[in-house]
Amino acid sequence: MALTRNEPAPLFSPDTANTLRLIGYLALAIGLMVIDHRNDWLTRVRYAASAAVEPMYRLAALPSRVARSAGDAMSDRARLNARNAELERELLLAQARLNRLQSVREQNERLQQLLDAQRSLELGVQLARIIDVDTDPFRHRVVIDAGARQGVAIGEAVLDAHGVMGQIVEVLPDTATVMLITDPAHALPVKSERTGLRAIARGNGALDSLELSNIPISADIKPGDKLVTSGLGGHFPAGFPVGTVREIRNDASGMFALATVAPSAALDRSGEVLILHNLPDPVGPPAPAPAEGPPAPGAQTSDPDPVKRP
């Protein structure tokens, strides 16, 4: 300490002063945490500071991106060719399947018209890329490179090619944060594809498993059952794959069964994700006829290829 103290008699000795200051700062920090916990200040601060936060994210993700593109550049021609051929085969297969489904879809539409069902099954989706930053290894969140300016809003579901990944919990102007379904704070309503049994799948902090708790012991569920979103609760649209039941055991109380589920989405770093724009139909009577006029700004701006679900 090169500090020279010229004051004749300091009110506190340096040690006590330091302790007092520590207590002051600790109280300040605790106050901030309490306020933030209750009214979400951090989000607002982050939104205001996003001009600084987002470049930091991109800068931090740069090394891994460089490494990946270097890997792409280095990988030899034969392997790329093989991969290309494989993808073409898959595309062909998917195309064939799609063609078959097309006729089913037409039939479905016709039947729906007959039933006078107005519910549309078209999905407005948007492609986004995961920015490789890690904010906290013990919370399962990823940052994607689309934000408020691209029309992303809080609560929208995020999918990858294999299933549900999570939902948007925070939106900055050009990035957004996704809470993965394996986050300990996340839960989503699911149902068994085979039996229709409903349950809640909760994250348990491990990236490769979900938990179904409070299932009646007598319920018809067994390892290998596929789970899809049930659409109850209104956050996730119905019918998207969530995972496969891995094992079932009794929970600690012995009153209910507890199932472990392997999520079907590739949660550990998949490169690109789909953001689902239209939220599922609300429960209850149908909404009044849509108002004619210009669309709301920011809604459905970049929606290049709406995927149709048969």
Binding site: N18, R21, L22, Y25, L26, L28, A29, I30, G31, L32, M33, I35, D36, H37, W41, L42, V45, R46, A49, V53, M56, T135, D136, R139, R141, E170, T177
Partner: peptide, 24 residues
């Protein structure tokens, strides 16, 4: 201590954790 507090706050804003957690 004051600078540590502010640096911690910046860390909180970057990480998106509870505001004040790293500062404390």
């Amino acid at each position: 201590l004051g600078r540590a507090f502010v640096l911690g706050l910046v860390g909180d804003v970057l990480a998106g954790e509870l505001l004040g957690e790293q500062a404390l």
